[in-house]
Write a protein that binds this DNA or RNA. Structure first.
Lengths: 359, 359
DNA sequence: TTCTTTTGCTAAAACGCTTGATCAGTCGAT
DNA sequence: ATCGACTGATCAAGCGTTTTAGCAAAAGAA
């Protein structure tokens, strides 16, 4: 004989979670008891199972109980059953170092949430032990996969434990294992866009202050510069390519050399160099963009948008990198050639290049 | 197709995890079977239970099996049993917006890891729906507690769901619920330190360009300025306090007014204003620190360290904020007065203030 | 009426782990 | 010999869900 005790109307204010003080959180069982049904039924109601047959009246009663008790499902238990968690891991080597990593996180999170995943983040700041621990932690939480990201675009080794999981390299790539999925910014296209801004400004003699540090960006941005010139029918002049350390001091220090080149425009490897160059040019009594037009690269908000004049530049698509990384991980997107997926670096035009009026 | 990539070197190299292809991860049971013991024993070995009595030989056998099979504990199952997860949630309203949030994350993570916790991060970018979902997600994962952080120091409302968990406000505070634990930067001390840098530089007439935006920082930094002057026996002159919008343009725009005040030094509400002011002063043919000494606030790395000359400033202790937040959450630290814990803002001296030689 | 569906719901087995209770031997001490 | 105290390990319950198989009652078909 089954005693179907229906819950005899909880005398509390209707619709308001009652939740007395309790040591332990409300469980499915308790909801079931309150609603006078089995846990199975509650589970079915909660998950809105399509082919479950539940009377509307029952469904209602369960939902009331849930609200009444302020029930929260226990994600651990859920994941235990399903065998796989709703986590995507993101290991980053420089959340703290730059404003950039934040955008990768942001993009990854937005996209992850869109697909019902939460982000488990670990910031390694380049510490390999930390990194190993971080990956181990993620594996223990049975993440759906791991996004391994670097704060600047570069080749990287794939930590061996990473292979125990599905993973995607974000803002980096592995020369050793070319089959590893990766998503990176399209440096060459970016370099071309940057140069194009100047070409559209009517400039013909355009210098490029490249970085001294070897990196995919160094080669890519130069290639883009050359491609843009070529497309415009301007012969490439190696003398117009300088090199300097990629920070403000580097840009500043390159001023003298630059001025010997008699150019009307400069494309800097990054915004920080452009910022330094601004100082250098100003000290030489030159105005921007009147005497010399300048474009940067990175669109580092704090700098680019607020220099005097505001700097035209090309955006590093960190947000998209993060988002695309998640999509790749989930198998929703793949690089055409099976290797690294390249994300566009969109131009951001500001006042450091004058608009070209007529021919 | 998966196998090759995921399991390199499957040949029976001794001591190396063998891990054949399997749909499901290795479980405790399997380790137990491999070692010829019960799961209980394996569990005891793994967790190095102090009062467990296990023969060395057995322990050895278990450890071998673990290594052999490449076993990884399932954190979900573990947490299910223990009832509480090893997560600390961090909801931030601006990971992407500023370089600052990154430091909060960094500090929180370092401290969390130190105590065996992993960080579950949600970036809301100020979106309240997202925020609600984020908190719900964290509650479902039964986080140990939640750090609710803002990217700039400000009063905030405590979302009601947040109260379902242990929480600490980081870089913000709740006027409505003064009992809520919080950790914030010591703006007044920071303002005093900033002013002190100038005082030590021998300056007596020091202007303060405050922000126009109401915020704890506005009041605190001003209070610190006044306190420093008072301590130095200099009467406070309201005419020396200007106000401008707290960005480069604001600082630049304040130049003219500033120059009417005939001061030898300026303390800016933040580094961005200082950066703008640099431009303004330069345009007026004034040199830093020769003609006018400048200090900022925030120690925004990209700017402060690389202006010409590098900017003396005061550091916003974001890393410490995050770390202290975690400690508070875990009950390892508390504010003396039971309200908000104030973290010191350390001075960072660079070249924008000349060293004072003798009296 | 009797048989077959359909409807609404429940029982119970997992999921992978921890842990208190237990138990079979061993060893000294009486 | 007998007893207690260890030692080394196992049993089994339980953590909060999901989910498949199945059951009783109601509804339709004959």
């Amino acid at each position: 004989m089954i005693s179907q005790e229906k819950n005899p109307g909880n005398a509390a204010t209707p619709g308001v979670p009652v939740k007395m003080d309790r040591a332990h959180p409300v469980t499915l069982r308790e909801v079931a008891e309150a609603a006078g049904v089995s846990t199975a039924t509650v589970s079915l109601v909660i998950n809105k199972k399509k082919n479950a047959r539940i009377a509307d009246e029952t469904r209602q009663r369960v939902n009331d109980a849930i609200r009444q008790l302020g029930y929260r499902p226990n994600a651990m238990a859920k994941n235990l059953v399903s065998g796989t968690s709703k986590f995507i891991g993101l290991v980053a080597d420089g959340v703290a170092t730059t404003p950039f990593a934040g955008q990768i996180i942001h993009g990854a999170q937005d996209e992850a949430w869109k697909h019902g995943y939460a982000l488990l983040i670990a910031n390694t700041e380049g510490n390999l032990d930390l990194e190993k621990d971080a990956i181990a932690m993620m594996l223990e939480y049975k993440v759906r996969g791991i996004l391994y990201s670097t704060w600047f675009h570069r080749p990287t080794a794939v930590p061996s434990t990473l292979r125990e999981s599905d993973f995607v390299l974000v803002n980096c790539f592995s020369p050793d294992s070319p089959s590893a999925r990766a998503v990176v910014p399209d440096e060459a296209q970016g370099g071309q866009s940057a140069t194009d801004i100047l070409l559209r400004g009517g400039h013909r003699r355009i210098a490029f202050i490249n970085t001294t540090t070897p990196a995919p960006a160094k080669d890519g941005r130069l290639a883009g510069y050359r491609a843009a010139l070529e497309a415009a029918g301007i012969p490439f002049d190696p003398a117009l390519v300088l090199e300097a350390y990629p920070d403000q001091e580097g840009g500043y220090g390159a001023t003298a050399e630059l001025l010997k080149r008699d150019v009307s425009a400069v494309y800097c490897y990054n915004d920080r160099m452009a910022m330094g160059l601004y100082d250098g040019l100003r000290e030489n009594g030159l105005s921007i963009p009147g005497d010399i037009a300048v474009v940067g690269f990175d669109n580092q908000e704090v700098i680019a948008a607020h220099l005097r004049p505001p700097l035209s530049t090309v955006s590093l698509p960190h947000y998209e990198l993060g988002a695309a990384g998640v999509r790749m991980l989930l198998g929703l997107e793949a690089a055409p050639d099976g290797a690294a997926l390249k994300i566009e670096c969109p131009a951001v035009e500001r006042a450091s290049v004058a608009v070209h009026s007529a021919a």
